[in-house]
Design a protein around this nucleic acid. Structure first.
Lengths: 198, 198
DNA sequence: CCTACCGATCGGTAGG
DNA sequence: CCTACCGATCGGTAGG
């Protein structure tokens, strides 16, 4: 192996974390060995333990970083005096942007959180449920103000979250669209549907 | 362990497969050991090899069964003289129905296919891409006939597939809705959107 | 269907 | 940052 850990001071941990996210996404957390991670960084597995505490700690950092970023996005959208529809649009656009810029981390957070150990597992689930609850309240308000159709707000929110999350499946597909074109269509499709109005 | 493999002739293999699907879904394929599978069936791991060839064979059977079922559903929908919108609705409803009735198998097929070995991996991916291609062609026809909005058909299809697949995330949530109410809302939301018409 | 076992691989530590 | 190593666990086989 020719590669070597970045020399510049304290960013070695960040380098390890980024490579771990990449391998966890490609092969899964359990199927990624510390030996393989070391090999991709040009060191022995045992050397990694000078910079990190454990394999599980790597997963924890990834999952909670992503969860916190989404929570912060919600807070910044919530405090502005936009319409419900505009707030939903902004959140959908943030999900798309986050997925495209931090693909490995978002993917790992979505798929591998089950491998977290207690108390991190409960903590992560609590944070995710809180985020979902806030989105459901937002949609519920939109129904009350008649901006949105009468519907089950929970189903609506999970459908939106599933659709934006689905970007991870074809993120790499050779699609001609720019990020903005992609976001425009997704927002339009989710808010206004596929069928042409008469 | 008190439980024992079903005695009645040749359905032992099916019993093993069902329990494997359940464990693969709950803990993942790699994290499910043959020792654990045996324990849940009341036998030693080594005894399982009298009925199956390998751990990987269990995964192959699950993934290809699901892939074939979706392909058959497409064929049966395709040959009827419905409108494009009606065909899309029927396919969406089949996805929902399949997810709710064969939850473990569909979930495992969606998440664990990466663990298939060659040549099964290539075979599975080929079949999935063919299915997606057919849906994209269907949406493309709908755009041509002006039943559907002008849009990128690939994005539209992946959004639909992601949304119905998202059912797996809240399949168990205490939702008051019946299967039919759920399907009705999902179809309406995907085809006609969230926003109330003026 | 079981006991006994193989070779491989794992996360992590000791000690330098 | 490395060598050397530990105890645990894995999929699978031999032989009955």
């Amino acid at each position: 192996m020719a590669k070597i850990l970045a020399q510049k001071g304290s960013d070695k941990k960040a380098t390890i974390s980024r490579k771990a996210a990449s391998l966890f996404r490609k092969h899964g957390f359990a199927q990624t060995s510390m030996r393989s991670l070391g090999e991709h960084l040009g060191v022995e597995a045992s050397s990694l333990y000078n910079h990190i505490g454990s394999k599980n700690e790597l997963l924890q950092n990834i999952c909670f970083k992503v969860a916190n970023d989404f929570m912060k996005a919600w807070e910044s959208v919530d405090q502005l005096p936009d319409s419900i529809i505009k707030k939903l649009e902004k959140l959908i656009r943030f999900h798309i942007h986050k997925m495209l810029t931090d693909y490995d981390e978002v993917y790992v957070s979505n798929h591998e959180w089950k491998q977290l150990q207690e108390p991190y597992l409960s903590n992560f689930l609590h944070q995710r449920r809180l985020y979902e609850k806030r989105l459901i309240e937002l949609v519920g308000m939109g129904i009350q103000t008649k901006e949105l159709k009468k519907m089950d707000a929970g189903v609506a929110v999970f459908t939106i979250l599933s659709a934006v999350r689905g970007l991870e499946l074809w993120h790499s597909t050779k699609n001609q669209l720019t990020t903005n074109q992609l976001a425009d269509q997704l927002v339009d499709q989710l808010l206004f549907g596929l069928v042409k109005k008469q």
